[in-house]
């Protein structure tokens, strides 16, 4: 078995707004593309937050890229976070910056040695790939939800992360751009070993591209495996998320 990029070992933690606890035991190999599917309040976003080190589990341990998230300071976490691109349900583009400057920020902050020209070139390439070039000088408040989300994904990919954690990457994104997003992630995976974990609330093209589906309900994993295998064993209530 290849080296694990993300391990959630015997994790148990309360789910906000639900009487249930999230109880999972997951191991995601480096380079794997995993889609977490299920209805709202099933624990998908919580898994993304646990993986990103934003939430500490009540029990169990979470290890990302060999680093265990447990009681460390932010300065200890930062070297790991630079290797991970995360976009949560709230994309969090900075409202006082244009889209261009938002996507440029990680490079400006972490790759200060790069020339302005090469940074601009890198940002424009990402924006063009995601169909955002005409929006480069707009502020987040002037963009649609889908454009904000695509901008946040572009920003998350600027440092060439080893792991990409995406919470509902297709929310507010039109059907054509969903395909563009999927192709964008697949291209990045082809470029270098990239582990992708996406949480999805409805069927989307990402499900077709995933190596593995994890169907969740009320904080429990109901099915885990390749799409066809999951479609066979998944409970009726979750069938519409995988087919």
């Amino acid at each position: 078995m290849s080296e694990a990029a993300l391990v959630l070992e015997q994790v148990r933690t309360p789910m906000f707004g639900s009487p249930h606890h999230l109880e999972v035991d997951l191991r995601i190999a480096a380079g794997e593309f995993v889609a977490l599917v299920g209805p709202s309040r099933s624990g998908k976003s919580l898994i993304i937050e646990l993986a990103a080190g934003l939430v500490s589990p009540e029990a169990g341990r979470v290890v990302l890229l060999g680093h265990e998230w447990s009681g460390g300071s932010e300065s200890e976490y930062n070297p790991v976070r630079i290797r991970v691109g995360t976009v949560l349900e709230q994309p969090g583009l900075l409202n006082n910056m244009t889209l261009f400057n938002n996507v440029l920020l990680p490079l400006r902050y972490h790759r200060g040695a790069l020339s302005d020209r090469s940074r601009e070139h890198a940002v424009m390439a990402q924006l063009e790939r995601l169909g955002l070039t005409p929006m480069r000088d707009r502020f987040p408040a002037e963009l649609s939800h889908g454009e904000v989300r695509r901008g946040a994904i572009a920003r998350a990919c600027m440092l060439d992360p080893e792991v990409l954690l995406l919470d509902d990457p297709v929310a507010g994104v039109d059907a054509e751009m969903q395909l563009v997003l999927k192709a964008y992630v697949e291209e990045r995976r082809a470029d270098h070993s990239l582990t992708v974990v996406v949480a999805l609330r409805a069927w989307s093209p990402f499900i077709e591209g995933a190596d593995r589906l994890v169907a969740l309900h009320d904080g429990r994993v109901k099915a885990d495996g390749p799409r066809d295998a999951v479609a066979e064993v998944v409970p009726e209530a979750l069938r519409r998320y995988v087919e």
Binding site: L54, N78, T86, L88, L94, P106
Partner: peptide
């Protein structure tokens, strides 16, 4: 949170 996640 987004800034924290970028390691900033």
């Amino acid at each position: 949170v987004a800034l924290r996640l970028m390691g900033i």
